[in-house]
Design a protein around this nucleic acid. Structure first.
Lengths: 158, 158
DNA sequence: CCCCGTTCGTTCACCTTTCAACTTCTTAGG
DNA sequence: CCTAAGAAGTTGAAAGGTGAACGAACGGGG
């Protein structure tokens, strides 16, 4: 019994769009990372600071933070250890669930956020947002939305 | 003298588009990587195989390959060593420049390409291309093009 | 109550990436 | 020619990431 079917290769337009997308991502990541370097932060660090600073009481459970930043628990654990050593966050026990831990943003971490955020936003503008018209940005958003939804629904499947 | 200016925060629409873009990238990378895992390949491996299979004589200079895949020479060197051990590629001396080396796609590498490509393309379709209309894909491409150009022009600046 | 399956977070061993030092070869200038 | 600047690749150590295994704690069904 034959289970193979002819592969549906991408059309030229599709391939071109796809490759541009991949390329933009890589180059963008590179630039943003580079722009954060003077502050001794990685995008990962920054992302965690953002999540914490936007959360209630400036704290989040490890698991929630891992889910929010799309990393494994293991990786987050290492990451938080590093950031703890840098004084940006601190671990705190969770009263209601004694297995659990909070990552708490320190005053130092907060101050770092305040100092770095304007530069990071400027970086995002310079390399992304300000390079396209509001209409194009809106189209882009519209195109990506169903993809985002699909991918969210796939999280941790077979 | 005052050099600071008020930061140009992102509008809600901008922020939303930006975050979706970042999120899609991370999740997409995760899925594509996962779909290649059964073949014992990473996206990095695959990307290199693509570049080689599309190049003249199925070979590329290390430097060119590093530039094409946006990685450091060091990283590529390690990467090629691994792929060489896996039998996918082989190093070959360059006659015209005795400092130089070619990475050459082996028959095994070629065969792996042929076997894996349909699955990878299907994966790209499933998680990206087929989720949006051709018009939306075209809009997306149009929006990303100026960004790609800008970023290419930034490669290796201060 | 008290298991037993689950969740939480860390740890360990292993792999990948980064960074700087290094070798070898090329090339432009004197 | 010869030399000095610099490009091509590699290397090895240190840092970062992955996945499985683990101990501790929760919590629902006998």
């Amino acid at each position: 019994m034959e289970t193979e079917t002819a592969p549906q290769w991408l059309t030229d337009e599709e391939q071109c769009a796809w490759r541009t997308h991949v390329e933009v991502n890589r180059m963008l990541t590179y630039q943003l990372e580079k722009d954060l370097q003077p502050f001794n932060l990685t995008m990962n660090d920054y992302d965690i600071l953002v999540h914490l600073s936007e959360s209630d009481e400036l704290r989040m459970r490890m698991s929630d933070l891992a889910a929010a930043t799309l990393q494994s628990k293991s990786r987050l654990s290492h990451q938080i250890t590093r950031m703890e050593n840098a004084g940006l966050v601190r671990r705190e026990n969770c009263e209601s669930d004694r297995r659990g831990l909070y990552t708490v943003l320190t005053e130092d971490g907060m101050e770092t956020m305040r100092r770095v955020a304007p530069h990071h936003v400027a970086s995002v503008r310079r390399h992304f947002v300000d390079l396209v018209s509001p209409e194009a940005l809106s189209e882009l958003h519209k195109a990506l939305t169903p993809i985002a939804e699909h991918l969210r629904s796939q999280r941790g499947k077979p």
